[in-house]
């Protein structure tokens, strides 16, 4: 079964990085995965996004009709992608920046103050890693440990000094989403 996730936010929020980490974690789990960025012309202050499809079988269409999950890190992303969530799909909202309530009632919404949690973990830029933790808590596309290992592999090679903060951000998002599951939006 193919499960698709759209990560969307401002440029600089680490959208492509979070998708990349999910893709690497899925690959390490022996799954098939397809990662594609939105590489079109994007307006400053608008949205950047990437789509990650995870499946047990070889992946067909790179284009998805409906996403199984959308991670929206800023208001334009929610405006643009809320409608893309399939029925019974998941919408992860960064409530640090998004004040509006989602209009959909047929989807699961997990509201996490991603930017605030990222700041606590060490850096606002970790916002997408927090969101990735929240996503995995609600949709275990891959085990949390696999995401942790993917972060280790990528960051130990490139920027080992920020690994601890990234892992803290991941755990914070994961814990917040589990907790949020008990409270209405």
């Amino acid at each position: 079964m193919e499960r698709s996730t759209i990560f969307a936010g401002f440029g600089g929020q680490g959208i492509l990085f979070a998708g990349n980490i999910l893709a690497r974690a899925a690959m390490a789990e022996g799954l098939e995965v397809f990662w594609i960025p939105s590489y079109g012309p994007e307006m400053r202050g608008g949205t950047a996004s990437c789509t990650v499809i995870v499946a047990e079988e070889p992946i067909g269409s790179p284009v998805i009709d409906r996403a199984d999950a959308v991670v929206a890190l800023n208001p334009p992303s929610m405006a643009r992608f809320e409608a893309s969530v399939g029925p019974r799909g998941l919408l992860v909202l960064n409530t640090s920046l998004i004040e509006a309530q989602p209009s959909r009632t047929d989807i699961e919404v997990v509201a996490v103050p991603c930017t605030a949690l990222a700041r606590t973990a060490g850096d606002d830029k970790l916002v997408s890693v927090v969101a990735l933790g929240a996503l995995i808590a609600r949709r275990p596309l891959v085990p949390l440990a696999a995401v942790r290992r993917a972060l280790e592999v990528v960051l130990l090679a490139k920027r080992p000094e920020i690994l601890a903060a990234d892992l803290a951000a991941l755990e914070a998002g994961y814990a917040a989403a589990l907790e949020g599951a008990l409270t209405p939006v």
């Binding site: 990349n20 893709a23 690497r24 899925a26 690959m27 789990e29 022996g30 799954l31 995965v33 990662w35 995870v54 047990e56 275990p140 596309l141 891959v142 085990p143």
Partner: peptide, 14 residues
């Protein structure tokens, strides 16, 4: 995903 047995594909790269 956790129920899927890991396939022996160590040399895959993204």
């Amino acid at each position: 995903a956790s129920a899927v047995p890991p396939r022996p594909a160590p040399e895959r790269v993204l």
